[in-house]
Design a protein around this nucleic acid. Structure first.
Length: 271
DNA sequence: CTGTAGACCTGGAGGC
DNA sequence: TGCCTCCAGGTCTACA
């Protein structure tokens, strides 16, 4: 799925088309996503969209009295399409009809994503409340992360992917961030010194920002809402590159499994 | 409490 | 061409 950059790019693209517009009605073809789609979304009728926000990997549609909280799971995508060309495919589960001419369409092959009907105060939602800080905000800094790494002795990659510690870093970016920081994914968190954590935090912000700038990573089936593909995958150093030569030292990239997730690294560049 | 498989679901790729 | 196995941007739950 979409990690933080892909969700941020999606939000940025759809926002100008939706802010201030009216959701006339919805078409829910399949309610059975990871969680059942609420009847409030099925029956939605002439609701004004005040704003579109992102928190972690969630996209939030702010209505006058409520919110729609969307998680894209692994294969969820939002598209904007013109109603005049109306047709749909097998995995197009939800359409929101906007001002009677535009459709915000949700497509999700594996149905790991979900749509929740939330309160106006979406920060208090049970899923959003427990999220750690946004990695691109100042509250996520070297002191904050260093405190966590000292308290725990788990693989540093597992820590970066823990949404309760910092939200939005998934498998692709965890691999790339650790390569750039010259840190092995299997380093135990409390063996990292403050200088290494400082570099790690700097690279988290650098890589996420760079990916947003390039429109996210298109691998497998991620697409931007306008159908364009993200270009950041061209800049991968290790992700998906088992047995390819490291771009820096020419040694073979190694793949292992950590917590059931593919993990890629160069054991010469990373210590 | 902590850490870890397994679960959810579908389709594409590669081996035979 | 067909069947089988493995793999995939996430994350919740059950279990040791």
């Amino acid at each position: 799925m979409p990690e933080l950059p892909e969700v941020e790019v999606t939000k940025k693209i759809i926002k100008p088309y939706l802010k201030g517009k009216i959701i006339n009605y919805s078409i829910v073809r399949n309610k059975k996503l990871k969680y059942f789609v609420s009847d409030n979304i099925v029956k939605i009728n002439n609701q004004k969209i005040l704003d579109i926000k992102r928190r972690g990997r969630y996209i939030i549609i702010i209505l006058v009295n409520n919110t729609i909280i969307i998680h894209l799971g692994m294969t969820g995508k939002l598209f904007l399409i013109n109603k005049q060309y109306y047709s749909y495919n097998k995995h197009d589960h939800i359409d929101l009809i906007i001002n009677n001419n535009l459709i915000l369409r949700y497509t999700d092959t594996r149905k790991f994503g979900f749509w929740l009907w939330g309160e106006k105060n979406y920060q208090e939602n049970i899923f959003l409340k427990k999220l750690g800080p946004e990695p691109l905000e100042y509250s996520f800094n070297n002191i904050y992360l260093y405190n966590f790494t000292q308290k725990k002795n788990i693989f540093i990659k597992i820590m970066l992917m823990d949404n309760n510690i910092v939200t939005g870093i998934g498998n692709i970016y965890a691999n790339e961030i650790l390569f750039l920081s010259k840190i092995l994914p299997t380093r135990i968190s409390n063996t990292l010194n403050f200088e290494e954590i400082t570099l790690l935090v700097k690279n988290i912000k650098f890589i996420l920002n760079k990916s947003i700038k390039y429109g996210g990573s298109s691998i497998c089936d991620y697409r931007q809402p306008n159908g364009n593909i993200g270009n950041f995958y061209k800049y991968f150093f290790v992700y998906g590159k088992k047995d390819k030569l490291c771009k820096i030292c020419k040694k073979k990239i190694i793949k292992i499994i950590l917590r059931n997730r593919s993990t890629f690294f160069c054991n010469k560049c990373q210590k």
